[in-house]
Write a protein that binds this DNA or RNA. Structure first.
Lengths: 157, 157
DNA sequence: TTCGATGCAAATAGTTTGCATTCTA
DNA sequence: TAGAATGCAAACTATTTGCATCGAA
């Protein structure tokens, strides 16, 4: 298992910028990598590796899924990309510089992205009490949304 | 997909109690089910389905993994069992009445179980601000522990 | 004597790895 | 042209499902 290197989160504003970052580290700006990056720049929302491999549902040529995973990991190590997990489904990838934290309903799956500072006071409580620096950008804060809480309460007590 | 029924969380203090609960719902107290319950009563810590199938690493006779999953789900619907996910690895199962919430370090995997009321003020903030009833018993509160926070900060900024 | 439950095998989702081939620097 | 990256297949982890058989009530 490779050490979990998150990499410095230095967003690349343009595709050429990102390719330049690759080259400057001695990595190669291959067609396959360009394709993945194009998809990420084109996607308004975080996307799964599979959607990237599908060329964003056909908007770009297909690429190999295994290579997409490898390349997304490379980009993540360079700080170009971040990925996170919602409760269900595949991991989602997005360019850095668009970072959010996520709240998810474990019952209906509803996702709510929030700006990181919206949870700073929570972070402060958890850090003070348990010495843990809480982060909700890679794994979300999970709970029950207003629609689901009543139904769940009935079943539980 | 079956509707996510959590079931009323009524702990069964003894094995016979749990078997009785099965019978009272018209379900059968089979040998396989007895075996799973024995493992859960014998385990001091939450256990994976695989460890249960292995008879708690040989302390009990083996059982079929698929049946173990089926039975754990049945028990969960009866409110006898709860399961939760840490960041890595399989889901973990434990008898109800031992409920905890979990804090996990996303970098080193360190797990810290806490009593549910230790996070009540966090719950209150999140509910007030986002209308989400936060729960950290099924999916943990994830962050960086004191050992890992400095290393991660270096790589990220 | 019924259904409910079992055990085996096979399928599933998401992701990773091995390896011969291809392409970039 | 050397070594990085690709593409395909195969492995992998955790879990679920189909189905013929078995067994508890």
């Amino acid at each position: 298992m490779t050490a979990p290197q998150t990499g410095p989160a230095l967003p690349a504003p343009t595709l050429d910028d990102a390719l330049g970052r690759l080259r400057s580290r001695g990595l190669r700006a291959s067609t396959a990598r360009r394709l993945v990056l194009e998809s990420l720049f084109a996607a308004p929302e975080p996307v799964s590796a599979e959607r990237v491999a599908d060329g964003l549902d056909g908007r770009f040529p297909r690429s190999d899924l295994a290579s997409v995973y490898r390349n997304l990991e490379t980009f993540e190590q360079l700080g170009l990309v971040r990925h996170f997990h919602l409760v269900h489904g595949p991991g989602l990838y997005a360019l850095t510089g668009r970072d959010r934290e996520y709240l998810v309903c474990e019952r209906c799956g509803a996702v709510r992205p929030v700006l990181p500072d919206a949870l700073d006071d929570v972070r402060e409580i958890v850090r003070g009490r348990f010495g843990l620096l809480a982060r909700f950008n890679h794994h979300p804060l999970v709970g029950l949304c207003e629609d689901c809480a009543p139904a769940a309460r009935d079943k539980e007590e």
